[in-house]
């Protein structure tokens, strides 16, 4: 465990050693502002709520996170430093957990920068902070699922770019299949298809938190997806000892 924290600290710091980190945060905050003030019609609705901001998070995080995770394993594979990591006296699960926590730290920082939105709303009107706290907790859970998926994808590549593309594809698909539009298309198909999509997809699930309730089933689902992909990641790294 302590070794995963050492690795997490290193990965977290190394994000900030590149100007890309600041561009990412700026883009993320910009996307949050646009989705909140314009796409979700905060001014038109005239309600002191964060609905709009949270409802677009499954998409903005699906775009942001693969950009963060793409390099994690792919660059180790490319530079050969994977060998250094794997010959340090640390269990594979500690390495995977370290990379996960380090990236999550960066996601948390990016989310922190959007706190300006609820604070602004609080100033303009009387904001109910309950749903906001629930929303941020759900955003972290959602981000965790994306990070786990992105890390796993990254472990398959020696090059960051394909890891980014496949990461976008997987995260985007998971977000999209739960979207009401996609679910609408499925109406002609047997009912279990749309039920499965609604269950698997992140979009519809995430809308639940707009009501201000963090459903335990949703929490369990995000955590299961995260756990599954972290597990697959450990398995993938381990098999390198046989196949590399």
């Amino acid at each position: 465990m302590s070794k995963s924290l050492v690795l997490a600290g290193k990965e977290f710091r190394s994000y900030f050693s590149s100007w890309l980190a600041y561009i990412f945060i700026a883009l993320f905050v910009a996307a949050a502002l646009v989705s909140f003030f314009f796409l979700a019609g905060f001014f038109a609705d005239g309600r002191a709520e964060l609905r709009g901001y949270f409802s677009w998070l499954p998409l903005t995080l699906a775009i942001l996170v693969p950009g963060l995770t793409m390099r994690q394993w792919a660059k180790e594979n490319e530079m050969g430093s994977i060998e250094l990591l794997m010959t340090l006296p640390a269990h594979t699960r500690d390495l995977v957990l370290g990379k996960f926590l380090g990236t999550m730290g960066f996601v948390a920082v990016a989310l922190l920068f959007t706190l300006g939105i609820p604070i602004t709303v609080e100033i303009l009107g009387d904001l109910d902070w309950g749903p906001v706290v629930g929303g941020y907790a759900a955003a972290l859970l959602l981000g965790g699922a994306y990070v786990a998926i992105g890390l796993y994808v990254s472990s398959w590549f020696h090059d960051q770019f394909p890891a980014l593309l496949v990461g976008w594809l997987l995260c985007g698909l998971l977000a999209a299949v739960g979207h009401e539009t996609v679910l609408g298309w499925c109406e002609a198909l047997p009912a279990f298809v749309s039920r499965t999509f609604a269950f698997v997809g992140f979009w519809d699930r995430f809308r639940a938190i707009e009501r201000g309730v963090l459903d335990l089933r949703d929490v369990a689902y995000y955590l299961s997806v995260t756990g599954l992909f972290l597990y697959l990641n450990v398995a993938r790294i381990r098999t390198k000892r046989w196949t590399a």
Partner: peptide
């Protein structure tokens, strides 16, 4: 108990 210098000495160049 082992210290290891892998082939081509992979390092983290940004650090």
């Amino acid at each position: 108990t082992i210290g290891y210098l892998p082939e081509n000495n992979p390092v983290y160049p940004d650090m």
